[in-house]
Design a protein around this nucleic acid. Structure first.
Lengths: 219, 219
DNA sequence: TCAAATTTTTAGACTTACCTAAAAATAAAT
DNA sequence: ATTTATTTTTAGGTAAGTCTAAAAATTTGA
């Protein structure tokens, strides 16, 4: 059974691997986990001995199949717990992360399977991120940033990039939520702000907002 | 915030204090936690510095009010999680302990308050043990061992002493459960076995069984 | 009561997961 | 192509929580 720390390293490497081609650098992992590069080197050696990562000195790390499966399972647990907290325990989507960080390390296969069923086998967490299945398969759906949508086009909100409380509470205030249709009415070339319509509400959002909302094109 | 280990020590001392008058001995704690006396001495010193226990060398420990409140809160969490597992997640009462041992160390006041409400503010866990309230008050209900009930008297099952899987599964098999009425029909002086009736079922139980079931007298 | 048995504490060591500071390797730039 | 800058690793150290073995205190009992 892996320690909480080992699981957190695998999870971090998993997340960093989504966008990266080559091996993940020691520094990148250190930044992700808010720790020092030397600590990462130590841990990566240990994970390598356990055959959870491939590690060549000075050349970064890659998850093995075994490591990837464990990482996906930790993420599965994290996201299922988030769904439980929001749907059954009245948590807001900006309150779930910290608790889910703890809950994701509870070891009980039965617990997570039963919870999955209890929640009706959800496919996404409250932020729109896909929940890996029992075997660690994850469904990366195609999504674009709202900022890339052309004027006069419509799109549906499917996720968020930034998950900070400040940002999520801003979205709540503007009534931007998963599944909502967003129409792009105007784009301002000067600062890349855009005028959008959600339902009957029309308002302007900054580029910073638009680059943190994931959408799926209509049709 | 206390570590998992510190919380476990406080919980162990709390449980041992229920029956003890004097301070709890180092050895008793070591046995309860399956560790060594020397480790207990170390930890007890630390808890003493934090003013969670009173400790005098060679004379055992006692919880302070602060320590007792924390211990009761850990037990509260443990028992609420047990209720959730049994009532919502299809766990049997012999399967909950190990997972609850992990879950009791999750830190989130909101989580436990919401869960309490979600479960309808239960007063007892699946084994009949009382759940402490938010302030750490615990309702020790008066209960007797089934073995002490006189012939021709009736009593209601309110708890179990032994919580091993073997014992709990035996109870399931015999359909002995919390809230069931048990009539004592005969007692055998030779081996202290008793003939009992539950519903329409009549059968004999050994003294060992009878001294591990808590009951409340009818009336 | 005072020696023997038991309990408890101390002393020193180990593991995990960190850290800092310095050395080594790699990458960038003139 | 070297020098410079950056990244990564090594070396050595710390804190929490555990252990074993030996010393000290307490309890038991003849």
């Amino acid at each position: 059974m892996l320690s909480k720390s080992e699981e957190n390293y695998l999870k971090a490497i998993f997340h960093l691997s989504v966008k990266a081609e080559k091996g993940i650098s020691t520094n990148a992992i250190a930044q992700q986990l808010d720790t020092k590069a030397s600590s990462v080197t130590d841990m990566v050696k240990k994970l390598s001995e356990k055959e959870l990562v491939l590690y060549v000195k000075y050349q970064g790390v890659t998850l093995t199949d075994k490591g990837e499966k464990i990482a996906a399972n930790v993420i599965r647990k994290h996201r299922l717990w988030e769904v439980l907290l929001v749907q059954k325990f009245n948590f807001n989507w900006d309150e779930v992360h910290e608790v889910a960080e703890q809950l994701e390390h509870i070891h009980s296969k039965k617990l997570i399977d039963e919870m999955d069923a209890f929640l009706g086998f959800p496919k996404h967490d409250p932020h729109g991120d896909p929940i890996p299945d029992k075997d660690g398969n994850i469904n990366f759906l195609e999504k674009s940033l709202l900022s890339t949508i052309d004027v006069n086009m419509k799109a549906v909100c499917v996720g968020v990039k930034d998950t900070s409380s400040d940002f999520l509470r801003y979205l709540d205030k503007q009534e931007i939520a998963l599944g909502k249709e967003i129409a792009v009415l105007e784009k301002e070339a000067f600062d890349n702000s855009m005028l959008i319509r959600i339902g009957t509400n029309e308002f302007t959002i900054s580029q910073q907002i638009a680059t943190n909302i994931y959408v799926k094109n209509k049709e």
